[in-house]
Design a protein around this nucleic acid. Structure first.
Length: 847
RNA sequence: GGGCGUGUAGCUCAGCUGGCCAGAGCGCGUCGCUUACAACGACGAGGUCACAGGUUCGAGCCCUGUCACGCCCACCA
C-alpha cells in the first residue's frame, strides 16, 4: 500500500495516460468470440482546425459506455477515425496556404507553398493540392490526438483510420463498384443543385434553407390576341427572364383559365412562351401566374420535366450569366447588358432595363425569403445541368423506414427525424463531386474516334487494383499515352461525396472483405453514437450501405447526443466569438472534471457549458482521493471478515442497491442517471456513514467494532472506485493503484452483493442514524456552537422500527454526536424521527 | 407551413407506468480550521410545478386548448 501524504489531481493525466498507452490497456482482443464483443461505430473526428468543448462532450458519453462495457468483461472494439476527406479541408488549405486547385496544371514535384498566403490564390496542380491537404490534416490530427488522449478516451489507437487513407479509399471504391454492378449506382445528365463557389454539385442532404433579403418584381408579359391587358408575373429572379420557357397557372384558377394554350411574349427579349397549367402553381402566390425558367428552383425542374419544356440555360457553373444567350433568345442590347454579370448583379440590372422599357408593374418590393444554400457555402445554389453519379434511394424508401423502426433510438423521439427525412426524400443520392481532396470515382471511360467519352461503357478496375486514382492510374489494356487520345481513355475527374466513404465506417474499421474473421466478430455493431444534425447524412447513408451490402442494420442502437451551447444557451460558433476551448478547461479543472460536466448532459439534450459543474466534478475527484487516503490509512486487520455491526451491514446493502441501479441505467446507456445515483451514494457514504463510524474505525485492531467498520469502509471504497471509474478515469486509477494491482479500468464491474454477509441487510440503521446525527448537527448549528459541543441528552421519538434501527447505531451516534445519553419515545405518527437535543452547558462542555 | 422537443426553487436540471407535506447540485445566508478533505465541512432560507379548462377519490405526471423558447423539415413566383 502506497498512499501519498497529500493526494492531488496534479500530474495524474500525464502519468496514467502514458501508462495506459504503454500497457495497451484499451486494445481490442480480436480472439474473443462475437458474443463478448462490444463494437462501437465511433464518429470519425472531424479535423476542422478549430477545437471547442463541443468536440469533447459527446465523446465522453461514448467513453463512459465503453469503459462500462469493458469492465463488464466485453472486449470493446473502439476504433478512432479521422474525417479529413472533403471540402472543409480543401477550404482550409486554400486559406492557410493561399492556393487553389487547378486540375489542368501538371504536377510540380518541387512545389513548396508560399510562406504566407498572398492576396491572390495561387493555382496549383491537383497532386500538389492533395499533398497540402495531407500535410495540413496530419498536423491537425496530431493536435487532436493529444486532446483526445488527455481527455482519457479509451479508444484503441492501433485501430485508427482516416477517411482519406488507403484502407478507406479501397473500401469506399469497392462499395461504389458493388453499387454499380448491381445497378444501384447510375449516372444521369440532369439539372442538379450546384454551388457556384466550389463549382460542384451537392446532394439534398447537404442543403439548408436560409432566410435572405430579396426583391419581388412584377413583370409584364405581352399577351396574345384579344386576351386584353398584359399578363403580370411576380418573380424574385428577374435575371432569369431570358431562361423563361413558359408561364404557368393553376388549372382551377379562373383568372388565367382562358389563357392556357395561348402564347405570351417575354419583355426585353420578345420571346414567345406558352401559357400552361399545372397543379403546383399556387393561385395565392404573387399574381397566381408564375414564370418557368430553366432553372430557378426545384419547382422549375418539376414543371420542366412534367410539361416537357425545352431548356434555355443562362447561368454558368461560375454563377454568372453566360456570354451568349440561349438558343431562341436574341443577342440584342438587353442581353449585352447582362452577359458576364453575376446573378445578383444581373438581377438589379434587369430591373433597370424593365423600368426603362416600361415593363415593370409597380415598384420592386423588398422581401425576405428562404433560399437554398450548400451547408458550407455562402452564395445561393444555382441549378445547372451536368452529368452526375447517383445512388438509388427512392426505390427502397420502405426498406429504410423499416430499418429505422428496427433500430433502438436513444432518445426514442429521434426516430421521428429519421422517418421525416426518409419520407421527404425527393431525389436519389448524388454521390459525385467536382472536387479534389476525396476518394476518386474509380472509373475510366473509353474515348471514341471523335475524342468524346462514352459514359455508357465505363471501364471498371478489378477489385485487386483498388484503390485507384483514374487521373494518374491507367486502366488495364491501355497505355499511359492513351490518356485523352481519340480511341484511348479518360479518367472520371470527380470524387465521391464524403458521406459515400463515411457511410462505410463500420466496414472500414471492421475489416470488411480484408479481415473476414474480425469483421464477423464486430459487425453488426452494438452502438452508433452521433449528433442529431447528421441523422440525415451519416446515420441514414450508413443504413443504406449496410442494407445493400449485408441486408442488416449496421448497429443495434443509435445514441444521439445533443449540442453544447454557450452559458447563455446559444449555439457556439466562431463568428459569434463564444467558443470555449477545451484546453483552458483542462488546465483549470482537469480531464476528470470536464468528463463529469459532460456526463451531466443527458442523452439527446443540449447542454450548456457550465464551469460550475466542472468545479463540482473536480471536487468529487478530490473527495475521492481524500476519502480513500483516510480509509486506506486506517489500521489493517488480519484476514477473517469482521463485518457485523448493523450500521456497517446497512451501508453495504445500500451500496448494493446503488450498484444495481447504476448498472441498469448504464445498460440502457443512461450515463447521467447512473452517475447521479453513484454520486449521491458516495456523498452520503462520506458525509453520513464515514462520520458515524470514524470513532470505531480509529480503534486499534482487536478492539470491538473496529474491524467491522474498516471492512465496510474498504469494501465500500473498492466498489465505489469501480463505479466511478468510467467517469473519473484518472482519479479512480490513482486510488486503485494505492492498494490494488492492475488497472481499475480492466477490473470487473461490481456486482451485488458487495459482501456476502451484508446481502439483503436492513438499510434502516443507516437511515435512522443519519436522521439523528443530522438533527444533532442542526441543534448545534442553530445554537451557533461548534459541532464538537457535547450533548447532555438526545430524545429520539418515532415509530418502533426506526427507533430500533437508531438504537442499533447508538454507540456510533454517541461518539459522532458527543451524546452522553439517549432516550427513546415510541410514537406511531411521524414517518421520520424527531430528536430533541439538550446541549451541554458551557461549564459541562469545558470539562 | 409541417414535425419533434422543452417550459418544475435566482441558475442548471431530476421527478419511473398519476398516490402520503415537490427533490438534487450550484448560487445565497448562518456557523465551524472536529486527527481524510478550509479550492473544506455542518446547517438553513428559497417553488401559484408556463397558463386555462377537463378526466380522477387523488395530477408536476393523463386529455384538450393557449402562450413562450429551441431544433428538424418544407417546391426560392
Amino acid at each position: 500500500m502506497r498512499v501519498p501524504e497529500r493526494p492531488s489531481l496534479d500530474g495524474l493525466e500525464a502519468k496514467w495516460g502514458a501508462r495506459w498507452e504503454a500497457d495497451g490497456s484499451y486494445r481490442f482482443d480480436p480472439a474473443r468470440p462475437r458474443c463478448d464483443v462490444f463494437a462501437i461505430d465511433f464518429p470519425p473526428l472531424t479535423v476542422s482546425g478549430v477545437l471547442h468543448v463541443g468536440h469533447v462532450f459527446s465523446y465522453c458519453h461514448t467513453d463512459v459506455l465503453a469503459r462500462f462495457q469493458r469492465m463488464r468483461g466485453r472486449s470493446v472494439f473502439y476504433p478512432v477515425g479521422w474525417d479529413d476527406n472533403g471540402l472543409p479541408t480543401e477550404r482550409r488549405v486554400e486559406n492557410v496556404y493561399g492556393v487553389r486547385c487547378d486540375p489542368s496544371l501538371p504536377h510540380d514535384p518541387g512545389f513548396t507553398p508560399p510562406a504566407r498566403p498572398g492576396p491572390r490564390k495561387q493555382p496549383i496542380s491537383r497532386p500538389n493540392f492533395v499533398e497540402l491537404c495531407r500535410r495540413l490534416t496530419d498536423a491537425d490530427e496530431q493536435a487532436f490526438e493529444d486532446l483526445w488522449r488527455r481527455l482519457g478516451l479509451s479508444v484503441d489507437w492501433t485501430l485508427a483510420y482516416a477517411t482519406i487513407g488507403e484502407r478507406a479509399r479501397r473500401v469506399s471504391q469497392r462499395g461504389f463498384l458493388h453499387l454499380l454492378a448491381a445497378g444501384e449506382a447510375y449516372q444521369a445528365e440532369a439539372p442538379t443543385l450546384w454551388d457556384v463557389t466550389y463549382r460542384t454539385a451537392v446532394a439534398q442532404a447537404e442543403i439548408e434553407d436560409r432566410e435572405v433579403p430579396g426583391v419581388a418584381v412584377r413583370v409584364r408579359f405581352g399577351a396574345e390576341g384579344p386576351a386584353g391587358p398584359d399578363l403580370v408575373v411576380e418573380t424574385t429572379r428577374p435575371e432569369l427572364l431570358a431562361a423563361c420557357v413558359a408561364l404557368v397557372a393553376h388549372p382551377d384558377d379562373d383568372r388565367y383559365r382562358g389563357l392556357v394554350g395561348t402564347t405570351a411574349t417575354t419583355p426585353l427579349f420578345g420571346v414567345p412562351v406558352p401559357v400552361v397549367a399545372h397543379r403546383l402553381a399556387e393561385p395565392g402566390k404573387g399574381t397566381g401566374l408564375a414564370m418557368i425558367c430553366t432553372f430557378g428552383d426545384l419547382t422549375d425542374v418539376t414543371w420542366w420535366r412534367e410539361l416537357g419544356l425545352p431548356v434555355r440555360s443562362v447561368v454558368t457553373r461560375a454563377g454568372r450569366l453566360q456570354a451568349d444567350p440561349p438558343a431562341g433568345v436574341p443577342a440584342g442590347p438587353a442581353w449585352a447588358g447582362l452577359a458576364g454579370r453575376t446573378t445578383a448583379d444581373a438581377r438589379a440590372r434587369t430591373v433597370e432595363l424593365l423600368r426603362a422599357s416600361g415593363d415593370l408593374a409597380g415598384e420592386p418590393r423588398p422581401i425576405t425569403h428562404p433560399v437554398k444554400f450548400y451547408e458550407h457555402g455562402d452564395r445561393p445554389l444555382e441549378i445547372v445541368t451536368s452529368r452526375q453519379w447517383f445512388v438509388r434511394l427512392l426505390d427502397h424508401r420502405e426498406r429504410y423506414l423499416a430499418r429505422g423502426r428496427e433500430l433502438e433510438w436513444q432518445p426514442p423521439f429521434m426516430r421521428a427525424r429519421y422517418e421525416h427525412w426518409v419520407n421527404g426524400l425527393h431525389s436519389d443520392w448524388l454521390v459525385s463531386r467536382q472536387r479534389f481532396f476525396g476518394v476518386p470515382i474509380p472509373l475510366w471511360y473509353p474515348l471514341g474516334a471523335d475524342g468524346e467519352a462514352d459514359h455508357d461503357r465505363p471501364i471498371v478496375p478489378p477489385a485487386g487494383r483498388l484503390p485507384v486514382d483514374p487521373s494518374t492510374d491507367v486502366p488495364d489494356g491501355y497505355q499511359a499515352a492513351d490518356r485523352g487520345r481519340p480511341g484511348g481513355f479518360a479518367g472520371d475527374p470527380d470524387v465521391l461525396d464524403t458521406w459515400a466513404t463515411s457511410s462505410l465506417t463500420p466496414q472500414i474499421a471492421g475489416g470488411w472483405e480484408e479481415d473476414p474473421d474480425r469483421f464477423a466478430r464486430v459487425f453488426p455493431m452494438q452502438l452508433r453514437p452521433q449528433a442529431h444534425e447528421i441523422i440525415r447524412t451519416w446515420l441514414f447513408y450508413t443504413i443504406v450501405r449496410s442494407e445493400f451490402e449485408h441486408g442488416v442494420l449496421p448497429w443495434r442502437r443509435a445514441a444521439i447526443s445533443g449540442w453544447v451551447v454557450d452559458p447563455d444557451r446559444r449555439k457556439m460558433s466562431k463568428s459569434k466569438g463564444n467558443v470555449v476551448t477545451p484546453a483552458a478547461m483542462f488546465d483549470r479543472y482537469g480531464a476528470d472534471a470536464l468528463r463529469y460536466w459532460a456526463a451531466g448532459g443527458r442523452p439527446g439534450t443540449d447542454t450548456a457549458v457550465d464551469e460550475g459543474q466542472m468545479r463540482v466534478g473536480r471536487r468529487l475527484a478530490i473527495k475521492l482521493l481524500n476519502s480513500a487516503r483516510f480509509i486506506l490509512g486506517l489500521p489493517e486487520d488480519g484476514p477473517g471478515g469482521g463485518l457485523g455491526a448493523p450500521l456497517d451491514l446497512a451501508v453495504l446493502a445500500g451500496l448494493d442497491a446503488a450498484t444495481a441501479d447504476a448498472t441498469a441505467a448504464l445498460e440502457a446507456a443512461d450515463w447521467t442517471a447512473a452517475l447521479e445515483r453513484v454520486e449521491r451514494f458516495f456523498w452520503a457514504f462520506c458525509d453520513q456513514y464515514l462520520e458515524l463510524v470514524k470513532d470505531r474505525a480509529y480503534r486499534p485492531p482487536g478492539e470491538p467494532g473496529g474491524a467491522s467498520a474498516r471492512a465496510a469502509l474498504r469494501t465500500g471504497l473498492d466498489v465505489q472506485v469501480r463505479l466511478l471509474a468510467p467517469y473519473l478515469p484518472y482519479a479512480c486509477e490513482e486510488v486503485w493503484s494505492w492498494w490494488r494491482d492492475g488497472s481499475v479500468h480492466l477490473a470487473s464491474w461490481p456486482e451485488p452483493p458487495a459482501a456476502p454477509a451484508a446481502a439483503g441487510a436492513d438499510q434502516r440503521p443507516l437511515e435512522a442514524a443519519s436522521q439523528v446525527i443530522a438533527a444533532i448537527r442542526r441543534a448545534k448549528s442553530q445554537a451557533k456552537l461548534p459541532l464538537r459541543t457535547p450533548v447532555r441528552r438526545a430524545t429520539v421519538a418515532g415509530p418502533a422500527e426506526l427507533l430500533a434501527a437508531a438504537r442499533a447505531a447508538e454507540a456510533d451516534l454517541a461518539a459522532a454526536g458527543r451524546v452522553a445519553a439517549f432516550e427513546y419515545r415510541e410514537r406511531p405518527d411521524p414517518a421520520t424521527l424527531e430528536v430533541a437535543v439538550e446541549l451541554a452547558t458551557p461549564e459541562e462542555a469545558t470539562t
